[in-house]
Amino acid sequence: MEEVPYHPLITVTPESVKKVRQMCEIDDVQKIKDCLDIIEEWISKQDHLVEASKYITRNLLERVFLIAKGSTEGTKRRIERLLTSRGMMPELCMNRTVEEFETQWDVVHYVPLPKLHPVDQSRVMVTQFLTEKLDPFNILSYFRYCFLIGEYRINYDYTPSERFVIDLTNIHFGLLSKLNPITIKKSEVLCTEGIGTKIKGIHILNAPPFIDKLVFILKQALREKVANRVHVHNSYEDLQKHIPKEILPKDYGGDDLSVAKLSERWKETLRTPEARQLIKDAEKMISDESKRQTAKFNEEYMGMPGSFRKLTVD
């Protein structure tokens, strides 16, 4: 079994790999290899997945295997969902370039923290608003960038779950008009049902006076299980009860690099030829529905038809 590829911004230690495998009950390395061989052979026989499979690396496949808790059949379903849901929601994950996000970078940071959570081995993602001038901010562009980071990161990371920290410093009431519940819902579906990410928590910091309205919009757009994991913290000390300071940025009383510094390093990384190629390859990871032998994946797996249209915000 190959080692997890090294990345300067995504720390994965041999101890972390061991813990994650134990948590997912798949610490038998030979079993992992054998199962991945079976899954690769299965994909090669699915006409609608063959072309997309050329861009699924062994590393990526093992990450999906982790998320499926070592289930071969579960991994097959996850691959189906990943490749099909990406094609169903191209506005979130297709036709992207790094340059597209330069305007958003003036308004908001979005970065993975380098170290995994020591307890549950989740990766912590931080959103930090930089200015009260929110005109350039676009919720769809924001999620497109989130998924771009995620699809790049999955080639190097080794985690079955994620936590999200959202710093609302500089936010005013005008943000509410930019929160499209349908876009939020689609993003959650792609994240949890398509990619299969387990969301351990959404942690809100520096909440504005209208936080109840903001949380209401979030909870209406999210599944109940995820909505119940939204936490509003009144201090950084309170946040540290959930996320230890040794992995948090200096911004929040932590020991690691500032969010601004991490953001700059991520921008540099995403501009490299290697990253651009991975982003380009991700564009091709969609199923060819014209060759699918079974129909109605949307209804059977995603439950999406009509569900978005029923979403309302008072």
Rank of each mutant, 00 (worst) to 15 (best):
M1K: 01
H7P: 00
H7E: 08
P8K: 08
V12L: 06
E15W: 09
V20K: 14
V20H: 13
C24R: 15
D27Y: 01
D27A: 05
V29P: 14
Q30M: 14
D34Y: 04
L36V: 05
L36F: 06
K45E: 07
Q46F: 08
D47A: 13
L49E: 08
A52T: 04
S53M: 10
S53N: 13
T57V: 03
E62P: 04
L66W: 04
I67H: 03
A68P: 02
G70I: 13
E73F: 10
E73T: 09
R77G: 05
I79E: 04
R81L: 03
L82S: 09
L83V: 12
R86P: 00
C93E: 08
M94I: 13
R96A: 13
V98Q: 02
Q104T: 08
W105K: 11
V107I: 14
K115L: 11
V119W: 06
D120W: 11
V126H: 05
T127D: 10
Q128E: 04
D135Y: 14
I139Y: 06
I139N: 13
S141F: 06
L148F: 12
I149K: 11
Y152F: 11
I154D: 07
P160L: 11
E162G: 12
E162N: 12
D167Q: 10
N170I: 01
I171S: 09
I182T: 15
V189Y: 13
V189P: 02
V189E: 12
L190I: 15
I195M: 12
G196C: 01
I199E: 11
I199L: 15
G201M: 03
H203Q: 00
I204M: 09
P208I: 08
F210Y: 06
K213D: 12
I217T: 10
K219H: 00
A221P: 00
N228M: 10
H231W: 11
H231G: 05
S235R: 08
Q240T: 00
H242L: 09
H242R: 04
D256P: 01
V259F: 03
V259A: 00
A260C: 10
K261D: 07
E264Q: 15
K267H: 10
L270H: 03
P273I: 02
A275D: 02
A275Q: 05
Q277C: 05
I279Y: 14
K280P: 02
A282T: 10
D288T: 08
E300Y: 14
E300P: 02
Y301G: 04
M304T: 09
P305A: 00
G306L: 03
R309A: 10
L311R: 02
T312E: 11
